[in-house]
Design a binder for these strands. Structure first.
Lengths: 170, 170
DNA sequence: TGGACCGTTCAATTTTTAATGAACTCTACG
DNA sequence: CGTAGAGTTCATTAAAAATTGAACGGTCCA
């Protein structure tokens, strides 16, 4: 009896409860930053793992595809949220999570926010040019005021970002 | 000739170029905050309009459905990003954009970020409980350290949010 | 040189999210 | 009351985003 039964037939690599919770916490967490769930899962598992993991570990343990993991790792690498390290198998690349909040936020600001702000600056330039063409004087005055307001916003944002980084920086 | 022709048959309510650019700027802009395009469009048009607009104006000029506009206005209201004001037609509700960055960011933090952080706090509590159950002592020590790290993150976030608001507050 | 294996890429697919529009409520007015 | 118009709701549909997986490129070693 019980031959081939399913009771307590645990998958060898399944996440333990603590890991499950941390992975899920990060999976939800990254969504406020508009990032895909899988990226949170990958970072979460690295965060909660004492030993470095290779791509294949992530594929098996999180049960997501090789493609997703590859892309997720690429993204986390550009953010500086993970580190490549040596591991048991020399053929593989192993990863560790970088657990400094400063690093994560810094990477996110650099890779995701700065570019938007740069393009915003250009678009404001274009807007200014458009406002200059406006014939109706009172309309022009109004538009001009609004564009000025936007420019002030951008300046404030530029001021806030480094401030955030400084506060996280100790 | 030219009776019923299409040349320069401009839609009476089409956006002018400046409006188009501002609407598009906000439509893209809100995406970094993970909000739907339509919300950016609505706020954008209110931002760039000298006079208050009613729902129907937004439906016609942005060419989006009544349902979307209704939901978008509801969201912007809870954020405090727009104001109800009087207008020509007493039967309708007119809206103006609130153009203080402080207000927008404050509303976003209050409505979108705080709730996440609250639930995060609860989940960390649950994690702590789970770690307490861990039998292996060295594993427990490791998990404990990580959970402590997460708690520190949360505290740092709580520190940063009011700071942001203060910097935008003048 | 060849084949085993790690990792990447990207077109196809699935899943998630946003937008639509018909049905509804509510109010004001005759 | 009854109807007309403003505004909301929500099931359906459409659009966007994430995920998959098969094909590919590179490298190491026999």
């Amino acid at each position: 009896m019980c031959l081939g039964g399913f009771v307590s037939e645990a998958k060898p690599n399944a996440l333990v409860e603590i890991e499950r919770q941390v992975v899920s916490l990060f999976a939800d967490g990254v969504r406020v930053a508009g990032l895909p769930r899988s990226i949170g899962e990958i970072y979460g598992l690295l965060f909660v793992s004492a030993d470095p993991l290779a791509m294949d570990d992530l594929v098996v343990r999180l049960n997501i595809s090789k493609g997703s993991v590859s892309q997720g790792l690429k993204f986390l690498r550009t953010l500086g949220a993970i580190r490549e390290v040596e591991g048991p198998d020399v053929r593989r690349t192993y990863y560790e999570g970088d657990i400094e909040l400063k690093k994560l936020v810094g990477g996110f600001i650099r890779e995701q926010m700065r570019p938007h702000m740069e393009s915003g600056k250009d678009r404001l330039k274009a807007l200014e040019a458009e406002v200059a063409k406006e014939e109706d004087e009172s309309k022009q005055a109004f538009y001009d005021e609004r564009v000025k307001k936007l420019e002030r916003w951008l300046k404030q944002a530029k001021l806030v970002l480094p401030l955030i980084q400084r506060v996280l920086g100790e």
